[in-house]
Amino acid sequence: MAVTPWQLGNIFGPRVAIQVKGDAAGRMIKNAKHPLLVAGGNVLKEFVGDKLYIEFIVELLKARDMPLIATGASYKDFADRGLIPVQIMNAVEVVDRLRDSDWSVDGKGPHDLVVFAGLSYQYLSQLLSCIKHFATHLRTICLDRYYHPNADLSFPNLTEEQWMENLKLLLDNARLR
């Protein structure tokens, strides 16, 4: 069955995200030269199993070191978990800068992959659209449990159990050490 966007009315265009499973997503993150993780306010609202989504993000960052930008007022919660994001920014401001092919949040060379997690569906959908059209040097992947046609890579729409399984797979395959 063809995958549909999570929001049924958000009919996608000619170019749509490739569906991936957790293992492929993990390898993509592991193999990226300089990935960037953008985590939004919903990491404090959604649960993966019995843990907050933010706990998974913290685990991911321990497994695969990469710069983190905390949006949507999520900074403090990362800091409380001993993980200091590189920067606090509004997600629109981040994507604005990502249009520049030489920009990076940490000054360590341009990013090649942007990993998004925990932004509300429609908000992220619009931001991914901007990157799709105007930041063609980048690849994007979304870790949320809903299919995002405007990303380059996305999970299909998943049940909570399927999502948890895929995130575990992702973690195993993204691990650098």
Partner: peptide
Amino acid sequence: FYMPFCDQCCLCTYGKCD
């Protein structure tokens, strides 16, 4: 700063244009 809502234009009979 633009975030297209739709990838196409469908305002005239040439279209839809990608």
